[in-house]
Simulated assay, not measured.
Amino acid sequence: MSTLTTPHIDVHRGGDRMKTRVAWLDSKHSFSFGEHYDPENTHHGLLLVNNEDIVTPGQGFDTHPHRDMEIVTWVLDGSLVHQDSLGHAGVIYPGLAQRMSAGTGILHSEKNDSWRLPPAQGGTAEHAEPVHFVQMWVVPDEPGLGPGYQQLEIDDELSGGGLVTVASGLPRYRERTAIAINSSHSALHVARMPAAGTVTLPEALFLHLFVARGQVRMEGVGTLYAGDAVRLTRTGGQRIVAELPSEILVWEMHARLGGR
């Protein structure tokens, strides 16, 4: 039985995130990542990684391995080329939901070089724009699953301004999720909100709200800016109002790392 009995809300400002900056990458980490380790900040619920990355044209992450992780990538601006050891190759762009299940092991690369792909795989003309995306990792239900990949365009659904279930393993969203993840206690919702638009957070054991762009006001918290995050425990139902055109990412989780 969980000992988390008291509702709790923590606000984490974007400027306080750990950062990795090299010539081609500007990366901000909501949780411990790589050489940036804080034992008090390793995860929230089942969410281990929430990285906001900007990658310059022609650059990116060379082929590297992953194992036993559900990885969801959400592009805000530009395009990101995904290639993996299962033979998938394609371009991820705003409004395209994408999930990679690492399972027993997978190799992949992610680069801002769509012009290097043939047109049939989404190849484009050379460009000078960076790609801006958020990559999120959640723990699967069990280790040793088979690796997999899924993507689906949901731009039209997002135009309504409400919360859209982008990736989920929760049974309650089975009929209306864009892509499936091997995490039966987790769901990612995204909202592209016009100015003055409103959404209401779901209720859950754990919630993670990330302001990907814009500026919103959260009931009981106040104004949140791009890069800010709120971690909620045993609560939900708060109203979010966009003070500017905004995009928010909300993880709904009904378990935590190490058990319910």
Rank of each mutant, 00 (worst) to 15 (best):
T3R: 14
H8R: 11
D10W: 04
H12Q: 10
R13F: 10
G14R: 00
D16A: 11
T20I: 08
T20F: 12
V22I: 13
L25E: 01
K28R: 15
G34E: 09
G34P: 03
H36A: 15
P39D: 12
T42Q: 15
L48A: 10
V49W: 02
D53K: 06
G60V: 04
D62H: 09
H64C: 08
R67H: 08
D68M: 09
E70G: 02
E70P: 03
L76N: 04
V81S: 03
V81Q: 06
S85W: 12
S85K: 02
G87Q: 02
Y93E: 14
P94C: 05
G95E: 04
L96Y: 05
L96P: 06
M100W: 07
G103Y: 00
W115M: 07
P118T: 05
P119F: 14
A120N: 11
A120V: 15
G123H: 07
E129H: 14
P130D: 10
V131N: 12
F133Q: 08
V139T: 07
E142H: 12
G148W: 04
G148V: 10
Q151Y: 09
Q151G: 03
Q151V: 05
D155F: 14
E157K: 14
L158A: 01
G169W: 03
L170E: 11
P171F: 06
E175W: 07
T177F: 00
S186Y: 01
L188F: 13
L188W: 15
H189R: 08
V190P: 03
V199A: 09
F206K: 12
V211T: 02
A212P: 14
G214C: 03
R217S: 13
L224S: 04
G227C: 04
D228H: 00
A229V: 02
R234W: 10
G237V: 11
G237E: 13
Q238S: 15
V241G: 07
L244Y: 13
L244P: 01
E247P: 06
L249K: 04
M253H: 08
A255Q: 06
L257Y: 14
G259R: 06
